[in-house]
């Protein structure tokens, strides 16, 4: 098998496996996996910037929230149907990413981290300030009858699972395709050595801007879907904590790998879920696990796989 075939087999195989699991998983894990796939999509978006372009953002919750609120507010106040609302959500995220990218990309390194953090904080506070429409931290429910997409009731477990899988699969293959195209190669060139990429004649700023917009759009798609699938929009999703989560998932799963974000999100979810069943101190377990992982598997799960078995892993 050529490398391309191996890559295809692995990723198509993952989607096929997830599809098959729809029919055999017990209810609880079935629901969890639907959630994990949406969160993994968020992490895939994050990974475009961190993993492939080397841009560490601490404010991605603003894109997730832009998608969620773009979708939810247009249903609540404009009476949109789910499909156009979803598009509004994604467009809000893309627009926000464009503005944030234009401003924040003037900075680099730690300053970039802080600028994205500050913009995210602004978005969070704005949601609170607009409490008349957003109900602030309490948030609001998107009622079941408002969540029927093309005749499919998204609150039905199986529909929800398949919708999440569709979103996840689209974003997974889109990014897989992206990094094998010239634009993706420029991203990697910037990650490896920005100065050299510039000397080679690439428009580094424009490429980075593309990266931010693609990343923001995918994150917004995840946010909008999350709201639609689980029926709730709230300001908590715009807090710093939700900017840190995708960073953790990506670093744990393996930066700069296509399946890493999924593995990281899955791992963190079950780490917290299982340890909270055993003890109240699950944050302690999560903390220790992070330290141990970063000490003994510095490349993340997929990174270790690539190092030890599958050297071709994209």
């Amino acid at each position: 098998m050529t490398e391309t075939q191996k890559i295809l087999v692995l990723h198509v195989g993952l989607i096929a496996l997830l599809f098959a699991l729809n029919f055999i998983l017990p209810a609880y894990h079935h629901g969890n996996l639907a959630r994990v796939m949406v969160l993994a999509t968020y992490a895939i978006g994050y990974n475009v910037m961190l993993g492939y372009t080397g841009l560490l953002s601490l404010g991605h919750a603003m894109f997730f929230a832009a998608g969620m609120y773009g979708m939810a507010l247009s249903i609540r106040h404009l009476g949109f149907a789910p499909a156009p609302a979803l598009l509004v959500g994604i467009a809000s995220g893309a627009g926000l990413a464009l503005v944030v990218g234009l401003l924040a990309l003037r900075t680099a390194g730690v300053a970039f981290m802080i600028v994205t953090l500050m913009f995210a904080q602004t978005v969070y506070l704005t949601i609170l300030l607009a409490g008349r429409w957003t109900r602030g931290d309490e948030g609001f429910v998107i009622q079941q009858h408002e969540r029927v997409l093309w005749g499919i009731d998204l609150s039905d477990p199986s529909s929800r699972y398949l919708a999440a899988l569709t979103l996840f699969a689209i974003c997974l293959f889109a990014t897989l395709n992206l990094i094998r195209r010239p634009l993706g190669r420029v991203f990697v060139a910037i990650r490896e050595n920005e100065e050299r990429a510039r000397l080679l004649g690439y428009n580094v700023f424009r490429a980075k801007l593309f990266s931010v917009v693609i990343s923001g759009t995918i994150s917004a798609a995840a946010g909008a879907s999350y709201g639609l699938l689980f029926g709730y929009a709230g300001a908590t999703f715009a807090t710093v904590q939700y900017s840190i989560f995708p960073l953790l998932w990506v670093l744990l799963g393996g930066t700069g790998t296509i399946i890493g974000p999924f593995l990281g999100a899955l791992f963190m979810f079950y780490l917290i879920d299982l340890s909270s069943g055993v003890t109240n101190a699950y944050m302690l377990i999560a903390g220790v696990a992070l330290v141990v992982l970063v000490m003994f598997a510095p490349q993340g799960i997929a990174g270790e796989l690539r190092r030890r078995i599958w050297s071709w892993l994209p």
Binding site: D137, G139, F140, V141, I142, Q144, S155, G231, Y232, G234
Partner: peptide, 14 residues
């Protein structure tokens, strides 16, 4: 806490 109630209630209903 209200935000936890509002976030959880749709799932309880479903």
């Amino acid at each position: 806490f209200s935000h936890v109630v509002v976030g959880s209630a749709p799932r309880a209903g479903e």
